[in-house]
Every structure is written in C-alpha cells, then in structure tokens.
Amino acid sequence: MTLPPRNPDEILRARGADTRPAGRFEPYQQEREHDGWDIPEEQALLRTEVTQERARSIIARNASPDIPFDRSVNPYRGCEHGCIYCFARPSHAYLGLSPGLDFETKLTAKPNAPELLAAEIGRRGYAVAPIAFGTNTDPYQPLEAKMGIMRGCIEVLSAWNHPMSLVTRGATVLRDVALLGDMAARRLVSTGVSITTLDADLARQMEPRAPAPATRLRMIEALARAGVPVRVITAPMIPVLNEHEMERIMQAARDAGAHAASMIPIRLPLEVAPLFRDWLERHHPGKAAHVMARIQAMRGGRDNDPRFGARMRGEGVEAELLHQRFRLARRRLGLDSPQPVLDRSLFGPPPRAGDQLSLF
C-alpha cells in the first residue's frame, strides 16, 4: 500500500500516524493535486472528534484458539493514544474510516454499554465466564475521564459478582483503583498494564497520547497496593527499538508490584504495516531497514504472519531467542506466577430494594 501524502492544511500535535490511507474495503483512494493557484490555505489543528453510538449489543464473542478468553467488551471504537503499532487500527476500516489518523481522531463512544451489559449478563441461561476489557482499544483512553463508561461497566460487574480481566495503559484506571480492589478481594478481577519502553522520548514517538512510562509504573504500584493482581505486558517488543529493554522493563514492573509478566513480538496486520513503515522513516530513518529486516525474520520473510498460533509468537531463530530471554528473565524475577483463577461461584443478580435477606 502506498500512503497518500500528508495534508499540509492540518497541524498534527501528538499523533502517531501522519496521513489517512483508505481502508481495505474502500473502492477509491484520495490523492492531493495542486490546483495551479499559489494561494496559501489556512492551517488548522487536527482535533479529536467523538461520536456517540447507541449500541444494540455489547458483549463480543470469539472462538480464536490463541486467545485466552471467549468474550469481551469494548466501550470505545478507535483510540486517542495513537500507538503507531496498534493491531486494532484495521478495525476502523469496518466503519469506512482510515486506520491512520481517523483511528486516533474519530472516536466512537457507547454510553449505553453499562445498561446493555447488565441486560446481557442478566438473561436467562447466561453462562458466566470472565469478560475481558482492553482487548481491542483501551477502555481507559483519555476520553474515559469524561465519559465514565468503563467505570459504569465495572460497577455493573461488581454488583453482579461477575469476574473480569482488564488490559490498559491508561492512567484513568487510577480513578477506579478502590473499585477494582474491592472486586479483587472477592477474586473477581485481574489486570495487565502494558509497558513498551522506559525511554520517555521513544514512548512519546510511538504512543503519543498514552501515559509516560513512569506513570504506568505508578499504575502498577497503585493496583498492587490495592490488592489487585497485576501483570506487566511487555508488548509489543520491536527489534532494534525496544527489545533490548525487555529485562529492565520487567524488573521495574516487578519492583513496582507486578506479580507476573507476558510478552508479544510486534505484529503488523493489514493496514498497520505501511503505517508503521512510514513512522519508521519519519522518526528512525537510519534504523528503518534494520528494524523491518528483523521483524520479517520472525514472520517468515513477511511483514506479518496472521496464522493462529504464530501471530502472537513469531517463529524462527529471532523469535525463539526473544522468547528464551523472556522466559529466563521471568523466572529470575519471580514473574512466572500463573494467572489468578477468578471466582465464578458468586455470580448472581444484585439485591433490589425490598428483597428478603438470605439467612445463609
């Protein structure tokens, strides 16, 4: 895919992508042509736009053999964090929007998510199992501070004693530490905090609107202090750029209170690959060819390998060496604790006003 040129009329501030390539379902692509007039156009700062969606259902199901959950909830579409490598970018193509700048500037919120969630888990015959959050876009991206949709979902699950898991890099999770700690006391929640680098400058380039690495370590510390099981997710590991930091990230997270660790090599599905290549050429031109050669060495000579089982691990000597380093560091640092088993036995509708109290 050839990316279109940047729109010179837009001022970009803290954005990961630089342009708007058309999604894979679009029959046409836009191109900019000079109209022959040398009249300067007015420039404007590109701002985030939020659309509210009245969703009809909220629990998404999957049967993927390499994913450890069968259901998830995503309160938002798109993510303002703007992480250039985000595997969720291609999902914006289903909306007729670009996985580039549109993914991080044209967001959709689902304010009725808590209401739908209560209705769906309350249906007759519902079989309880942990619901995963943060599996596509981050439920604690900046928009959550104003919308509070994620907090509403947690309150519903807490009231129903329903287990949940959470992956985030958003600092707004600190607002909900007490609520998550209360659920953890009932063995209803486990969390993961994603840290890709301890280098604040690199983080600002790769993840321009996500919290700084030091803030994410504070998130781990606060969650652990509240009794919430927290795993550090060293993902994605990118050859040349951040993979040399993996052990230091794990040690810093362990010192902050993480009980476990996981790792995934970078994967570049669909529209993510050309966006990532463009980002490399803009920010690390001297390393771009080396980075891509090392990625392809883990992906069978391609930018991406979408096969189940291989997509999360990579293969070949490069991938195996990375996984071996990770396993050794995880064992040395005591981050090899198994994921906590969440309690499903407490699940049930919350008491209503006037209900008779149970004697047992």
Score class of each variant (00 low, 15 high):
Tyr126Val: 15
Ser262Asp: 10
Glu120Trp: 01
Ala44Ser: 10
Pro5Phe: 07
Ala113Arg: 08
Arg209Phe: 03
Ala200Val: 05
Ala22Arg: 13
Asn242Gly: 07
Arg61Asn: 13
Ala119Leu: 06
Val50Ile: 11
Ala319Cys: 05
Leu202Gln: 04
Pro349Met: 01
Gly122Thr: 12
Ala252Pro: 06
Val128Ser: 00
Ala260His: 00
Arg24Ser: 01
Leu180Ile: 10
Lys110Met: 08
Ala129Phe: 00
Leu45Asn: 01
Phe69Gln: 00
Thr51Glu: 08
Ser194Leu: 11
Gly316Thr: 09
Cys79Ile: 15
Thr135Ser: 12
Leu275His: 08
Pro142Gln: 04
Ser98Asn: 09
Leu143Lys: 03
Arg24Phe: 05
Arg186His: 09
Phe308Trp: 10
Glu33Ser: 10
Val317Lys: 06
Ile249Tyr: 02
Pro114Gly: 08
Gly286Asn: 14
Gln339Arg: 14
Ala113Lys: 08
Glu10Cys: 07
Pro274Arg: 10
Ala127Ser: 12
Asp66Cys: 14
Leu12Tyr: 06
Pro139Tyr: 08
Leu107Pro: 05
Arg71Asp: 02
Ser358His: 07
Ala203Thr: 11
Pro265Gly: 01
Val173Arg: 03
Ala222Arg: 15
Pro351Ile: 12
Pro269Asp: 06
Val128Cys: 03
Ser194Thr: 15
Ile264Leu: 14
Asp102Ile: 04
Glu41Asp: 11
His244Ala: 12
Ala214Val: 07
Ala224Cys: 02
Thr168Leu: 03
Phe326Glu: 00
Arg331Lys: 15
Ile233Asp: 13
Arg225Gln: 14
Pro4Ile: 11
Leu3Ser: 13
Arg294Asn: 12
Phe347Thr: 14
His92Gln: 15
Leu116Asp: 11
Leu101Thr: 02
Glu281Cys: 06
Glu144Ile: 03
